[in-house]
Each structure stands twice: as C-alpha cells, then as structure tokens.
C-alpha cells in the first residue's frame, strides 16, 4: 500500500487527511515506529487512530493518560484477589507437595491483569495502540513508555520478559499543555495537525454528513473558518463544526441567514466558554453570516 492509497482508504473511511499527515501515518505503519500527533483540540488527532484500526481491520486499544498514571494501571498488575483465593482454596484442601505447584500457578498468565500497553503487544494481530493526551501524564510515565515503544517488550520479574507477538501501530496525541521530552520525540514520527483549510474542511463535512445541502455546507464551513479568526478563548474544532452542522440539519435550517434568533441559539455547539458566548453577540454573528452568505 503506498501513501496515496492510504490517504484514499482513509477518505473512504470518511477521514480526510492532509498530505503531511497521510505520509506520516504511512511511514509509521511501514517502519513500525510510533507516530506523535500534536495540534489544537478537535482537529481529529484521536479520530485517525480509530480510522486506522478500521482500515487494518484490527482492534483499537486506547490508553487515556492522566496525571498520576503509573505502571500498574498502564502495563500490568497481578490479580491479587484471585491469587489469594487460590492459595486459600489449596490450604484448606491439604497436601504440602502441592505448594510448589501453587506458586507456579498463581504467577502464571491466568493471574495477570493485562493493562493496555501489555495487551497491545500480546495480540495475535497487530492492533492500533492509541496513547491519548500523553502530555497529561507525568514525565516519569514517558520513561516507562520508552521501553515499551522502542523494544516492544515488557519485563515482569515473576514471569520473565514478555516479547511482542506483533508490533502494534502506536499513535500518541498531545495537546501541547506540557513540553514532551526529546527522548520521546526522537523515537516518533511527528506531525502537527492544523485546522483544515476551507477545501479540506468542506470535504470533511461532506464525507461526514453526505445529505447536507451543498450551499449550506459551504456557508457552514465559511462561517466556522471566519469564526476561528475571531478573538476566542477556545476555537471551534472540526468536531464542533460537525456537531453544529448536524444541529442545523436537524433543525431544518437551509440558509444561515434565515432565522438569526435560532442561529444564535445553535451557537452553543461552537462556543464552549461563557466569555466566548458573551463576545459573540447576535450582531457579530450576523456580520459573519453576512460575509459568507453573500
């Protein structure tokens, strides 16, 4: 599969990727290296992992990062309760010579709780591993990650080293709330995902909501694009744009300038903070609408 083909099959899955993104994704799958995506919220960083899983017809394993994430919740943990039950059951049922057996039993895979990272490397078919919002995890966690991502293996003291049965396609996303370490960046292919331009965004909208009226679609995209140029605390992403389009379609609006009051009410889909809503009164909305409708 060449990168153009990958871009095409992403498009078939209704995901419109820029050339840069498509090439990076293609290289990441081809070279079996992790892919690091940065960009503002709502530009489709997480979505691409889902689409990749669909294209390769494989499982998506997701690890959502948060402050305080550690090895036992991300790599593996022993199932202590189960082990304890087992030990007690054997104790009651007698026999000393079973003791060795029990020990080897309770430290076997049956008693191991696989967390996302371990699970991802022990699949029979290479899955897509999505490590979402890596910038939220602590810096120490990045260090754990390095071992898994560079050697694709996990060492468990009681069990030995677990080698990957298949190398997963790894996608890391970051919102840039903290600088990532150079060690991690170096091991990844990198792409910065921008807000799409008019043409791309229109293509996205048409792919996602195919039965939307053409002129309305153009108006919507034009409006959202100019809204992004306004002074907003939280700029509307592609996801917000799609929500809004769905809302407009659901309300049966065929032209943006039909009903200003109704339009203003639907702005809740795009503006997500109080100040943004306050700074976009009806007059401003109408001015923007006037520009795109004309």
């Amino acid at each position: 599969m060449s990168w153009k083909k990958l871009q095409q099959s992403l498009a078939n899955e209704r995901y419109i990727a820029s050339d840069e993104l498509a090439m990076a994704v293609y290289l990441a799958t081809e070279q079996q290296r992790p892919l690091l995506l940065e960009g503002a919220a709502g530009v489709g960083k997480t979505e691409i992992a889902k689409q990749l899983a669909d294209i390769h017809d494989t499982q998506l394993i997701r690890l959502q990062c948060y402050e305080g994430l550690d090895a036992s919740t991300s790599i593996y943990e022993w199932n202590y309760q189960k082990q304890l039950l087992r030990v007690q059951a054997v104790r009651e049922s007698l026999a000393d010579d079973l003791a060795d057996d029990v020990e080897s039993q309770i430290f076997s895979e049956a008693y191991l709780l696989k967390r996302p990272l371990l699970e991802a490397i022990t699949q029979s078919k290479a899955p897509v591993l999505l490590i979402d919002e890596i910038d939220r995890a602590d810096e120490e966690f990045e260090a754990y990650l390095l071992e898994v991502l560079s050697d694709y293996q996990v060492s468990i003291p009681e069990l030995g080293t677990v080698k990957a049965t298949s190398k997963p396609i790894v996608v890391l996303t970051s919102n840039g709330s903290r600088d990532l370490s150079d060690a991690l960046r170096r091991r990844c292919f990198y792409t910065y995902v921008e807000y799409p331009d008019f043409k791309t965004e229109l293509a996205i909208l048409k792919a996602r909501i195919p039965d939307l009226d053409n002129s309305l679609a153009e108006q919507i995209v034009g409006f959202v694009q100019s809204l992004r140029k306004e002074e907003l605390e939280k700029k509307p992403g592609v996801a917000e744009m799609l929500d809004w389009s769905a809302a407009l379609a659901g309300l049966g609006i065929s032209k943006l300038n039909d009903d200003p009051v109704e339009l203003q009410a639907t702005m809740v889909c795009l503006l997500k903070t109080q100040i943004d809503q306050y700074s976009m009164p009806r007059e401003v909305t109408e001015r923007l609408v006037g520009k795109v409708v004309a």
Partner: peptide
C-alpha cells in the same frame, strides 16, 4: 529507511517523508 518505502523520484514525497522523520516539534515542523 523511510525513503526506501516511498518513491524517491518524486521530491514532494521525499519532502513529506523527511518532514515526518526529522521534525520533532512545532517550530521545527
């Protein structure tokens, strides 16, 4: 090794591939 998996003849592809490998933050990108 990335260049091996693409068509080297076309410089646009080469550019995109190098970009994915070498850039590691937004400024570089």
């Amino acid at each position: 090794s990335a260049l091996q998996s693409i068509d080297i003849e076309e410089h646009r592809q080469v550019r995109l591939a190098c970009k994915a490998v070498c850039a590691s933050n937004k400024e570089n990108y």
